[in-house]
Design a binder for these strands. Sequence first.
DNA 1: ATGTAC
Length: 462
Amino acid sequence: MNLEQVSPYLWRIPRDAGRGMRVPALVVADRALLDLIRRDASLEQLANGATLPGIVRAALAMPDIHQGYGLPVGGVVATDAEHGVVSPGAIGFDINCGVRLLATPYQATDVGPHVRPLVDALYAAVPTGVGATGGIRLEGPELSAALEGGARWAVERGWGDAADLDRLESSGCLPGADAEAVSPRARERGARQVGTLGSGNHFLEVQVVDEVYDEARAREFGLSVGQVTVMIHTGSRGLGHQVCTDFLALTGQALKRYGIHVPDRQLACAPLDSPEARRYLAAMRAAANFAFANRQLLAHWTRDVFRRVLGDGALRVVWDVAHNIAKEEEHEVDGRRRRLLVHRKGATRAFPGQPVLVPGDMGRYSFVLAGTEAALRETFGSTCHGAGRVMSRTAAVKAARGRRIADELAAGGVVARATGRDALAEEMPEAYKDVQHVVDVVHRFGISTRVARLRPIGVIKG
DNA sequence: ATGTAC
């Protein structure tokens, strides 16, 4: 792939009309990360993203980019809200996979002796693993209410406080969701999965703030060194997966009808003024709300567990972000305000001052950042979402053979429990890039700034 | 990510 260096942290794939690119592609990275990025097909996938009709300015990649389905994970594609398209593959299977951070009133020294009981109680309270059910069963109209109400639906039924909603991206409810657009099959898959963690990179972690980079911002977010936090990483489970599957098929069939050519069927899309696009967006928003409700329930049960194990201290929501979503937003492009549909697939919204939550791996760190004006100029108000893998799941399992990852984590001060036989091996720290490196790049490039670093002490996985 | 093959 032909790459030009634009600045120390920005690289360009020039527009190539021969391969159908309508705009160039831009990659935020340093040389070392770029070497890792070039090992998979993510840059070809990014160039494919630049062919989407109505794409504005450039197809963008964050430094944690890696190969995905259609568009790479870590990709940001903005299309014109009137003349552009929506592409389910540019959002991902796990619609509104995202992260919520809770701040506790406890210090590491308060929690230290209680980490094992805390992790055991969290593991008992939160259903984990692929296919996990047993949160709450939602029938007919009640499931529809959750799909259209998101976190607000959960709060109205007593799972959390109204004040939580002020601390969630989009207040935990995307308008324009329509439960009728979600297929019966997707509903069936979701009916018993609200209030479950799932598997893969999803986790619930007890952490300690081990470094603060920006005192003023940390204080504003309610974070200080030594404080215990809880991070919840999960999404829309089988329901969102089925919504993506359904609409990949539908948009795939519609390509010919609308005269759209994409270089990869996995980038199937539909014009924003088409019935297919309207229906997908209504279903995507419903799946996103399901994920917001899911994180609200897990936060509520986390509070129950902390109350039982540690006492009455209140757990406050710091923030909740979506990592896989498309949002209609207004941005300035070439000096003109334009309404765009911003697809973020493994990327975090980073509007000025907004908290950004970046999970790393379970042995090292996660980060809290703040969004910036530079992000609005450079990346449609977006930044990275995580570390990104360096090892495939199978490679990680192979590398972990004969080792006891739980013991290794314990030796590093992390109590871990997981459901799947290979869950800890697949997710072991060395299977991931160093999130600190990724965060350094977005900080130096300026699209978000470091606020605090969080070190895990307890983790539950699927 | 995912009832890891409807």
